[in-house]
Design a protein around this nucleic acid. Sequence first.
DNA 1: CAGTAAACGAGACGGTACGTCCCGTCTTATG
DNA 2: CATAAGACGGGACGTACCGTCTCGTTTACTG
Lengths: 195, 195, 195, 195
Amino acid sequence: MNVAGLDRNVDKRVERSKARVLAETYRQLAASGIGGVSIDEITRHSGVSKTTIYRHWPSRSALLIDACSRLGGAMEAPDTGSLEGDLQRLLTALADQLSSANWSSVYPSIIDAAERDPELRAMQAALHRGFMEPFSIAIERARTRGDIADACETSDVIAMAIGSLFFRRWFSRDEITPITETATLDMILRAVRPA
Amino acid sequence: MNVAGLDRNVDKRVERSKARVLAETYRQLAASGIGGVSIDEITRHSGVSKTTIYRHWPSRSALLIDACSRLGGAMEAPDTGSLEGDLQRLLTALADQLSSANWSSVYPSIIDAAERDPELRAMQAALHRGFMEPFSIAIERARTRGDIADACETSDVIAMAIGSLFFRRWFSRDEITPITETATLDMILRAVRPA
Amino acid sequence: MNVAGLDRNVDKRVERSKARVLAETYRQLAASGIGGVSIDEITRHSGVSKTTIYRHWPSRSALLIDACSRLGGAMEAPDTGSLEGDLQRLLTALADQLSSANWSSVYPSIIDAAERDPELRAMQAALHRGFMEPFSIAIERARTRGDIADACETSDVIAMAIGSLFFRRWFSRDEITPITETATLDMILRAVRPA
Amino acid sequence: MNVAGLDRNVDKRVERSKARVLAETYRQLAASGIGGVSIDEITRHSGVSKTTIYRHWPSRSALLIDACSRLGGAMEAPDTGSLEGDLQRLLTALADQLSSANWSSVYPSIIDAAERDPELRAMQAALHRGFMEPFSIAIERARTRGDIADACETSDVIAMAIGSLFFRRWFSRDEITPITETATLDMILRAVRPA
DNA sequence: CAGTAAACGAGACGGTACGTCCCGTCTTATG
DNA sequence: CATAAGACGGGACGTACCGTCTCGTTTACTG
């Protein structure tokens, strides 16, 4: 109706309720993962009634998807002039996120749920594209500079870069050392160097 | 008591019950992940009573851990004489597993649960060591042959190798193409080549 | 809040659920005594879910107490003008109840349970007072008329009257003859007659 | 086989097992009534295995019946020469039993169970005859002495006597005073006195 | 600024799963 | 061959959560 302000339509009460619910959802997500989020618990702690929650999200899944899809703080694609510099920045940022950020403890839940739920799968794909894009941009930029061997496809480089860090975060649980990116960076640079 | 038979002591009925329960557990694991396994459902489909299940596993968690910890079909470390040959074999095997095997759809559940449950974390660590070992052996063998740059630490190479494939499996959901290892193999070989 | 309707506040659904549950509880009580009442069975036959039952009664015991405490159809104290007439009426009514009424088969359960559960004991005491009161009134009335020997305490007379009938109902199981009160009535009248 | 000693046949081990089981059964009976007796609990505390218990008693009920039927310490019929003296002795003994004896807390369980189980009903009838007999003898003896009005049937007198005491024990729970028999005795004597 | 439509909280409801306890049957191995 | 040990299927218990539903009551926009 109001062309200028699509969101003007939204009742203040609605916004307030949604915000409270999402806040409590994040709290529970960080504390106990996707499986630990309980609608009844949200009701209890947020002061928002179950009725209202289900008015705004059709199901627990939908709420979780909504909450999770807001997690991916999209990274900026840096432009330092060299592949090394760009990757350095990107990997450091990612390693920092993995070392500390709340969502790194939620992400496995998402992957798991996506394994079975198509909607969640779509959400995860979007999230994932957000991750990859800055890498993609940096690599393509390097490629135009001739800094990357023709044989190296962009997606392979990205898989190597991000996969390495994620592997350290979720598979090497016995190591308490923080996730660092230097070794990975070196390896990638060697791998992509043109002949 | 029975000196001759350590395992003879195990009641046949126990073995039968356990086997039935685990079989049904795997079925449900593959179909719906860790969160989808229900003791009541197992009881209904396996013909084993809830009482008996709880006699053998103290909790749903314990059953899941037991079931999952038997998933890791330990790979043999190949010995083809070259790093390329060894890695080729290992990566192909891993890619095959990721493309098809049941456990690749369960693994995210495990990672997620491990994020919060120490026992599950230990189980996952063991599983993970099973993965890494053949890679570790192959790489160390190559290192003694002088086929690997000194700067490349074994764990970094493994992270890159396994991480790449896992990334393809769980993060690139929009691609339906099967998981292949050739590009990854090339990259690794370039990355570790001595100067 | 609603001044006009004290009981209006009670949700119709609540009343419906409670009524259904109590009805089924009575059915099971009559059929199998207190020990034979099962919440799951009530759920199955009443169409009321276990959740709802436990919403209204904190435990199986509480439900049983509630159900039983509604059993005592309080008798009116008659006033025929003579002790004989009053007792005649009261004993006949009691004998009829004992001969037929559902609760006479439940009452021993209550006595037994009261032996160990304080809450049930309180409930039984209340039930019991309901029994005794009309007798008490009739006897005291007779006493003011001078129809009762001073030596006869009211409680002793009641014990004799009610005890006799109960004894016939629960202890003389080999006799199929219905419980009658005439002999008891005669004995009491002789016992209390003033010198 | 052995005509002289039917009981010689009984294996010592059998006797030992039975004794242990019954002992533990009594313990539980006194502590928690019939409903509180658990076969598993007996096994746990008596050292006798469940298999053995079920070898000797076909069911939990049978064990309880067996145990209970040994409770009734048959009273001797006194012979003091007067109805008053005899009743005095009998009522005092009964009041003592009701005030203290373990079985008075078990008896309601029996009555309740007898309400529904024919075997238990038979057992209770036997127990009950044991109670009544000495009263019956004393009253008949008094009747031959002409101390009892012709109108008073023996069974009515017994009902009044025993019923009164039982009523005090099980119905007047609010009174903590011990069960006494004097008032009852007086009433009975007045009631049965020949014209 | 009054009236109305929406959003709301409170919480009842039917379901399903959990993990525990007991029953009565059974199998196995020991004395 | 009686026994101890204990596995087994069955069923009840009481709790937690899910998603639906029916209530009255605010609360915000609109006329």
